[in-house]
């Protein structure tokens, strides 16, 4: 395997893992809130967080670019410090995180919806506050579904292309991920490298989908009332 392919694989795993870790906790908390509170605000926010799923990824990348630009809301002028994110691997993490967020929230929300909310109510009558009930009832009962959410988020991050290439570029050894490496090798006619990367992506994706299916099926059985 060429070193550029190997670099792309390592960087992709690093970027996707970090992106998943960053979004997991906020996504789980928001998903719980969305699953339990039906209000105009929650519907509004839920659809807002879903946008990266329906927008062209390059559009999301463009918006991120505007956000991080010199005059943007997160740019050096308004923030007072220069994050220097553009065209770095950290920008790839940001792009992957934003793109994976809706999928993680949606899967986690379903996991919480499968937990009987009456069980949480019982927890409250037994003297536990809302957070304690969340930690001892909702979280363990949703755990399989939440793990599935994390795996799906990770795979979404692995496959990210449009937003990543817009904010992080496609610099071999620096910001080139599997997706952009496949694109480059295909463009340059390097069929072997493209094939190696495609096979790797295929295996990773297949294992991930298989695990999620297994987890989601088991979680619906486990959280069902006897």
């Amino acid at each position: 395997m060429s070193s550029s392919a190997w670099n792309a694989i390592l960087l992709t795993i690093q970027v996707s893992t970090l992106a998943t870790l960053i979004i997991f906790v906020p996504a789980v908390l928001l998903a719980w809130w969305f699953a339990r509170r039906e209000s105009v605000t929650s519907h509004f926010l839920f659809s807002l967080f879903g946008l990266p799923m329906v927008l062209p990824p390059t559009a999301v990348g463009y918006l991120l670019l505007q956000l991080l630009a010199d005059e943007g809301p997160m740019g050096p002028v308004l923030m007072g410090l220069n994050l220097n994110l553009l065209l770095t691997w950290q920008a790839a993490v940001l792009a992957a995180a934003v793109m994976a967020f809706p999928l993680v929230i949606r899967t986690a929300k379903v996991a919480f919806e499968n937990v009987d909310s009456d069980l949480e109510a019982i927890g409250r009558t037994l003297g536990r506050g809302p957070w304690s009930t969340f930690a001892t009832v909702s979280l363990p009962l949703a755990s399989r579904g939440l793990l599935a959410a994390a795996i799906l988020g990770f795979t979404r991050a692995v496959g990210e292309f449009g937003a990543t290439i817009t904010v992080a570029g496609n610099i071999p050894g620096k910001t080139q991920t599997i997706a952009s490496a496949i694109y480059s090798s295909q463009q340059s006619g390097n069929r072997t490298e493209a094939a190696v990367l495609v096979v790797f992506a295929l295996c990773l994706g297949w294992i991930a989908i298989f695990c999620t299916e297994l987890l989601i099926r088991r979680s619906t059985i486990a959280s069902r009332q006897p």
């Binding site: 009456d118 069980l119 019982i122 927890g123 009832v137 363990p140 009962l141 486990a222 009332q225």
Partner: peptide, 10 residues
């Protein structure tokens, strides 16, 4: 004590 028992399955 609810009608359905509602024991914690885990």
């Amino acid at each position: 004590v609810p009608q359905r028992g509602l024991l914690f399955p885990h």
